[in-house]
């Protein structure tokens, strides 16, 4: 059998100590993705460091920020009164993800760390540059209905599967990372990577680091926000396209706006150009359409996913319209 060591720790300090000693170690939180990957032979860590008992589950308002511990469960965050009131977009995105059973054990940090659901990545008999650099990309020229239309490379067109991360990138979250020496902060939008020539790297977390918490600035976007997830069935399916939309309206004028998309890129895809266009304008159907058009600049289909070139702008319009219509 492929043996591995299972260690359990109750403090961040000892967790970081353990991970720094062994490059082929992995943290185990909810395990909803990592265990699958181990079963499929995609990854074979020598050590699993169970951090479920490390006290990083806080969900609290501190100053003008909301702090969420990396080990808070997806359910705990989605159900928390503070989140529902101040960050409804995040609650909606979380509830759109996975199934209730998975959300109960999946953590915030684990959600950020989940790997693509590209079928070629999971089948070790298939080519995949992300799993085995240099082996080729099965999805290019293959089954790419679920794949990216933005930020692709000729190495990889996989998408990041998270819903939660779409809300977090829209909400200007900051990720706090820690290693044995101390903490550093990374903007959420810079945490995940585009594939480029290194599709094996999903994000900028270093081998000796762990995610400890998120810091999300307060905002006035909570009244008019909506997470739209378009998928093949109503639950337990990854997004064909998803849109996180949040508006701060003054009368019908857009004071602030956040837009991000899922199911379209190797990382949570923030629609900055569309946001900039909408700021200060009327929240009108015409402007939403213009914004959606702007958001699609540089989009590129790979055959089976060409429908996303239409579904994505349509979904932006729909998400903005629903967000606006909220009382």
């Amino acid at each position: 059998m492929i043996n591995f060591q299972y260690l359990r720790t109750t403090t961040s300090k000892s967790a970081l100590n353990l991970i720094s000693k062994d490059k082929n170690s992995k943290f185990l939180a909810g395990g909803t993705n990592l265990i699958d990957l181990m079963k499929r032979g995609v990854t074979s860590p020598e050590k699993l460091i169970d951090i479920n008992h490390v006290p990083l589950k806080q969900i609290e308002a501190v100053g003008d920020q909301i702090i969420i511990g990396a080990l808070a469960s997806n359910t705990a965050v989605a159900e928390h009164a503070l989140i529902k009131e101040k960050l409804p977009l995040l609650a909606m995105a979380l509830n759109a993800g996975a199934s209730a059973q998975l959300r109960n054990v999946a953590t915030v940090g684990g959600n950020m760390m989940q790997r693509t659901r590209c079928g070629y990545f999971y089948d070790t008999e298939m080519p995949c540059n992300k799993r085995q650099p240099g082996s080729g990309c099965g999805a290019i020229g293959g089954f790419n209905r679920m794949h990216a239309i933005f930020g692709t490379s000729d190495q990889c067109i996989a998408v990041h599967p998270s819903d939660m991360c779409i809300a977090l990138v829209a909400l200007d979250a900051t990720v706090v990372l820690s290693n044995a020496k101390g903490e550093r902060k990374v903007l959420f939008k810079d945490f995940h990577r585009l594939p480029g020539d290194t599709p094996q790297l999903d994000n900028n977390l270093k081998a000796d680091e762990m995610i400890v918490r998120l810091e999300i600035p307060n905002n006035n976007l909570n009244k008019n926000s909506y997470y739209l997830k378009v998928r093949d069935r109503a639950s337990y399916a990854f997004a064909l396209v998803s849109v996180g939309a949040a508006l701060e309206l003054s009368d019908n004028k857009i004071k602030d706006v956040r837009l991000a998309m899922g199911g379209v890129a190797h990382k949570p895809w923030r629609l900055t150009a569309a946001e900039n266009f909408l700021k200060g304008k009327e929240a009108s159907a015409e402007n939403f359409e213009q914004a959606a058009k702007l958001a699609m600049t540089d989009a590129k289909g790979f055959g089976e996913n060409n429908f996303k070139l239409q579904m994505a702008p349509n979904s932006i319009i729909e998400a903005l319209t629903v967000a606006k219509s909220k009382a």
Binding site: R117, G142, D232, R233, S235
Partner: peptide, 15 residues
């Protein structure tokens, strides 16, 4: 390529 219950979609209760 979709030989698992996450990718082969049978309807769920919500459908």
């Amino acid at each position: 390529i979709n030989n698992n219950f996450a990718d082969y979609h049978v309807p769920v209760n919500a459908d």
